[in-house]
Design a protein around this nucleic acid. Structure first.
Length: 557
RNA sequence: UGGGGCGUGGCCAAGCGGUUAAGGCACCGGACUUUGACUCCGGCACUCGUAGGUUCGAAUCCUACCGCCCCAGCCA
């Protein structure tokens, strides 16, 4: 079971293996339970890959269940976006459920708790409840209403549902232990009153809504979930999860298991912060390519495969850490290297005139779409007397470590001939505006004899090039742990996280690229056609990730 | 000062009383190369938060410390 499909095992899969081996379960049922109050991010992907991955590798299934018990914060837009993201990641749920599907059953179970004397209607307001709850080191005191009769509780709960009481005036609380060292067990709230809200699934049918701690275990049990996987902060809630199921008449009792949530350097992962970035327009939206959201990564050009392999690579444990960006970047580079067709594009064009090349000649050359995968075929590129190369690929002089074009030196134009630079033409300000070179006609597909060329650079015909906009993304924050020292995380935003480069010259074939298509711009990086801002014939390219650059490290000379 | 967790190389992470302490990322060499990419080869923890103890034998068991995270919503 575990270990199939290349997925590494982890302590949760080991528990499942044991449960299968001991006969405790014959099939495994998990669920991914997002609250529809925001978009999914890479941290959710970890949970999705865990839950759906288990369903795929073991006999069993995984449900998608929206934890929609707080209509004040939830919206239909988010449920649709979440469904899209889960599907895009490559998963299909066995059943689509909403916690709100169970509101009637949840209500009935609450009545059962009241009848058995395990829940009561409390008249304390929120401030009073807090006072009565005690502190981390002092026990709480019982609510004055704790010993209300079953009949009175039943009557009051019925009237709560009927809408007779205003918001905040009463709650239904479990009767557990006000002296428990675990604050979650100090008579936790089960239901609160919320008038005037339109729930995206149930409309105005209800004015009382169940709390997470009460809803979650029952929802899991109703669905026959065997292993309820959640993050570490719910560890303290497990006794309550178990208490709820132990005190109502329900056959199923899932096992809650907690794992650590994902933290990634140079970004933020909390929904509160991501929401703030969107609402304050620090980014263009939930799908801004700089966002760690699934929608953002998708638009940026990440593939579902790369996100899944990233999740496999980071593992699942209970220890909290922060994963380096390099891990994520490695995953996407690895996938794109294999599937992205190569193209040439010059980000910072510098004109080169090949003086010994015929004025009107247009030479068709063939370039492989992939250096190691012949099945990806080849394409035609055209060479003309004037071409563009990147400004960074020329220096008037440099030591031997510099493997590009220098004055008097030779370099190969990728997929074409070797050229020698004879002159650098400058303007009045001393800025190089043009290079005058000569080419060696005997170097197409073969190396010159007796000379070694410094290196290979990419280029694009100046006369036939198309110009497009390219967006270069950098980390959204300039510090590995935004807002760490108690400072405002917004102060750590990287002002250079987006660089828009206009007038990037591309080989003609690229002008017809379709939204979502990914390419490797040779020697630059992987780029994806932006699905939002591209126009037919005028693609906008997002840089997914740069190529690994061993030169950049020693370039400071 | 209550309760619940976690501590293995820069990062993630195997390890579950007897292994030379997996693997990946990063990094450092080198090979290859018409992408300074990819690929390939080699290097990279006498040591597992610390200190004791048990044992023939401890990262794995015990004890005590230390550090970090979470919990006092009618949020999830």
């Amino acid at each position: 079971m575990s270990g199939d499909s290349g997925t590494p095992t982890n302590f949760i899969r080991q528990i499942i293996d044991d449960d299968l081996a001991s006969g405790k379960h014959a099939t495994i049922h998990t669920r991914f339970p997002p609250e529809p109050n925001g978009y999914l991010h890479i941290g959710h992907a970890k949970s999705i890959v865990l839950n759906f991955g288990i369903a795929a590798d073991y006999p069993g299934s995984c449900n998608l269940r929206f934890d929609d018990t707080n209509p004040a914060k939830e919206e239909e837009e988010f449920v649709e976006a979440i469904k899209d993201d889960v599907r895009w990641l490559g998963y299909d749920w066995a059943e689509l459920r909403f916690a709100s599907d169970y509101f009637e059953q949840l209500y009935d179970y609450a009545v059962e708790l009241i009848r058995s004397g395990k829940a009561f209607i409390c008249d304390l307001d929120a401030d009073q409840v807090r006072e009565y709850r005690g502190t981390l080191t002092e026990p709480g005191r019982p609510s004055p209403n704790r010993e209300r009769s079953v009949d009175e509780n039943l009557d009051l709960f019925t009237r709560m549902r009927a809408g007779e009481f205003p918001d905040g005036s009463r709650t239904l609380r479990a009767k557990i232990d006000m002296a428990s060292p675990n604050i979650n067990m100090r008579d936790p709230t089960l239901y609160r009153i919320r008038h005037g809200l339109i729930h995206h699934q149930t409309g105005d049918e209800w004015c009382i809504y169940p709390m997470y701690d009460y809803t979650h275990p029952i929802s899991d049990a109703i669905e026959g979930i065997t292993h309820s996987l959640c993050t570490l902060e719910f560890e303290d809630h497990r006794p309550l999860y178990d208490w709820v199921l132990d005190n109502i008449t329900i056959a199923c009792h899932p096992r809650q298991i907690e794992f650590s949530r994902l933290n990634l350097e140079y970004t933020v992962m909390s929904k509160r912060r991501l929401t703030q970035l969107v609402q304050e327009r620090r980014v263009s939206g939930w799908d801004d390519p700089r966002m760690p959201t699934i929608a953002g990564l998708r638009r940026r050009g990440y593939t579902p495969e790369s996100i899944r392999s990233f999740c496999d690579a980071i593992g699942v444990t209970k220890s909290e850490g922060t994963v380096e960006m390099g891990m994520l970047e490695n995953s996407i580079r690895g996938h794109l290297d294999g599937i992205a067709p190569r193209r040439m594009a010059v980000l910072d064009p510098l004109k080169v005139v090949i003086t010994n090349y015929p004025q009107d000649r247009v030479e068709a050359l063939t370039a492989d779409n992939h250096p190691k995968d012949a099945a990806m075929g080849s394409r035609e590129i055209v060479l003309t007397r004037e071409v563009f190369i990147d400004r960074a690929d020329f220096r008037e002089e440099a030591n031997k470590k510099y493997k590009r074009l220098v004055l008097g030196g030779e370099v190969r134009l990728r997929n074409a001939y070797v050229i020698r630079c004879d002159e650098a033409v400058k303007d009045a300000a001393g800025e190089i505006v043009e290079l005058r070179c000569t080419y060696d006609p005997d170097t197409l597909g073969q190396n010159p004899e007796g000379r070694k060329v410094r290196g290979v650079i990419h280029w694009v015909s100046a006369t036939l090039a198309k110009r497009v906009e390219v967006r270069l993304y950098d980390r959204l924050f300039r510090t590995a742990h935004p807002g760490r020292g108690g400072s405002d995380f917004l102060d750590d935003l990287n002002p250079d996280s987006l660089k828009v480069v206009g007038n990037v010259v591309i080989e003609p074939a690229l002008a017809e690229a379709m939204p979502g298509q990914r390419f490797q711009f040779e020697r630059e990086g992987y780029f994806c056609v932006d699905p939002v801002d591209s126009q037919p014939g005028a693609p906008v390219f997002n840089r997914v990730v740069s190529l690994r650059d061993s030169w950049g490290k020693i370039a400071e000379d």
